[in-house]
């Protein structure tokens, strides 16, 4: 059986919030080592990969691997019933039909428990190859979120260009064009504000801004986000989690 306790429900709430625009139904895979998820969006242009290692939980026990088929919208509704600061416990039997979600508010001595009906989710599990990326850029999540939001007011797509000078986001839409240039910088007092650019060779690719804005829903999970680009691979947008990560992959726009 699975029994997994998080000190703060906010972590799972934020994780589920950050994937619910992309994924409708998915399997949460629970194993001895932790909880993971891999799912594609309906249009098969983006893929989400989540890992929450067992050390990220206050208590974690999973005797044998369990697959929890979940409707993400339904899970969102149940998670909204708990407070951000509540202790959250997930429980499931070995062949579960429901996932039990318990919230404990220690200040008010309030315990609430909900059962989420599980479903069979037919999903192919794909391996993600180790990839040598041409460029990696780490920047503040708030900055990336602002860029994706601002450029989306002008256009549906963004061109990302990385070279040794820095990273440029630019777009050209019906009402006009825009661009933002970020140069590498290090901030010793506030390292989370630093911008780090690692480059093997310059790369320029275009992406759909709708998806980048969906990915930015994960901004509350980490101060920094890493973008990895290569001509031969989808864009990787990575947010580090306590003992894990949430990674979004997005195919570049082809043509136009």
């Amino acid at each position: 059986m699975l029994e997994a306790k998080l000190e703060q429900a906010a972590l799972l709430k934020r994780i589920v919030d950050s994937i619910r625009d992309i994924v409708q139904d998915c399997n949460f895979e629970c194993s001895e080592s932790g909880l993971s998820l891999q799912a594609m969006d309906n249009s098969h242009i983006a893929l989400v990969s989540l890992l929450l290692g067992k050390d990220g939980f206050t208590d974690y026990r999973c005797d044998r691997s369990i697959s929890l088929g979940v409707n993400v919208g339904a899970l969102t509704k149940i998670l909204k019933c708990g407070g951000n600061d509540d202790v959250l416990t997930l429980r499931a039997e070995d062949k579960p039909s429901v996932l039990s979600v318990m919230f404990e508010d220690s200040i008010q001595d309030r315990i609430s428990e909900y059962n989420l009906k599980l479903m069979d989710v037919d999903q192919e599990h794909m391996g993600i190859p180790d990839t040598e990326y041409s460029a990696s850029v780490t920047m503040p999540t708030a900055e990336f979120q602002r860029i994706a939001r601002d450029l989306h007011t002008l256009s549906d797509s963004v061109e990302i260009d990385v070279n040794k000078e820095g990273i440029t986001f630019s777009c050209d839409g019906d009402i006009g064009a825009g661009s933002i240039v970020l140069k590498p910088s290090s901030n010793i007092d506030r390292p989370e504000q630093s911008i780090n650019v690692e480059i093997v060779e310059p790369v320029t690719l275009s992406f759909n801004l709708k998806y980048l804005n969906h990915f930015c829903k994960a901004s509350g999970l980490s101060n920094q986000v890493t973008l990895r680009l290569s001509g031969e691979a989808p864009l990787l947008v990575e947010y580090k989690l306590p003992n894990g990560f949430i990674r979004f992959f997005l195919a570049p726009k082809i043509g136009d």
């Binding site: 098969h44 242009i45 983006a46 794909m126 391996g127 993600i128 691979a233 570049p252 726009k253 082809i254």
Partner: peptide, 14 residues
Amino acid sequence: PTEQALLQRFFEHI
């Protein structure tokens, strides 16, 4: 469709 193919090709290529 071409973007879908690219994503699927990338993940199946292992």
